[in-house]
């Protein structure tokens, strides 16, 4: 096994670059090293000006999403040895404006996030219970998969529709809305309906399915969106057939 591998990193420093450029670094190739370890090696030993986000190194924080050899990946979960003989292409996540090097701008998602009310909406008519809310394992299984989302934005980078329609709420956000809709303790489904069943909600999705393929946590946003389309379509039919009823 050769003991080094080349990494082609996209550089963009707005204070001096007009456009992104690619810079090659030769780094040691070790069996247990991920792309993030390689970038940390560059930052510590070779070029301290390289910028990228990272924190936990173990696929929990969702900070180190980047495009590795063309696919949206967490750098901490992508091993250099799987990309032999190299060079490994490391670019910022697609579909987002770049702030610097591999750091992307997430304001669009952060602004959309509260619109889906990703928290437990309680029934305000009822007094809060004296004890904790109880839930059976079956009730938890309903939403547990969707609660694994770490907001790493890989699904947004993978989604071709998000690249074309900036208003689209996007995969993670709709999966998050479903995570709360399917929770037996939540009463907010009606409040989320207006946002999620809007044209820029589920109806922008054309079921490409790349979001579910990209997800590093096994969440199935594409499935969540298709399930929600059924709910939203039923509501539409009800409002068309029974216009005098509830909405």
């Amino acid at each position: 096994m050769p003991d080094t591998i080349a990494v082609d990193v996209t550089r963009y420093r707005p204070d001096r670059d007009d456009r992104p450029t690619t810079q090659r670094y030769e780094i040691p190739l070790r069996k247990e090293w991920t792309v993030l370890d390689g970038l940390n090696y560059v930052k510590d030993r070779v070029d301290g000006t390289l910028s990228y986000r990272w924190s936990c190194r173990m696929g929990i924080c969702g900070s180190c999403g980047m495009t590795i050899d063309g696919d949206p990946k967490l750098a901490c979960e992508t091993f250099l040895t799987d990309h032999r003989p190299g060079p490994v292409r490391v670019e910022p996540l697609h579909n987002f404006p770049v702030i610097r090097d591999l750091v992307v701008e997430l304001t669009d998602f952060m602004a959309k996030l509260p619109r889906a009310k990703p928290w437990l909406v309680t029934d305000s008519d009822k007094p809060p219970p004296d004890a904790e809310y109880r839930q059976t394992p079956a009730e938890m299984d309903e939403y547990k998969q969707y609660s694994m989302c770490i907001n790493c934005m890989l699904c947004y980078a993978a989604c071709p529709v998000y690249g074309l329609e900036r208003d689209f709420l996007g995969p993670a956000l709709i999966a998050l809305a479903q995570r709360y809709n399917l929770d037996s303790r939540d009463h907010g489904a009606d409040e989320r309906l207006e946002v999620v069943s809007a044209p820029e909600g589920v109806w922008d999705c054309t079921f490409v399915g790349e979001c579910s393929r990209a997800c590093p946590k096994g969440v199935d946003p594409a499935g969540a969106i298709q399930r929600y389309k059924v709910t939203a379509a039923k509501e539409t039919l009800r409002s068309l057939l029974l216009p005098w009823g509830r909405r």
Binding site: P199, W203, K229, E235, T236, L237, R247
Partner: peptide, 13 residues
Amino acid sequence: MTTRRPVEPVLWL
């Protein structure tokens, strides 16, 4: 609301 473009859900069905 869904009534803004009710044709899309029907087409999807």
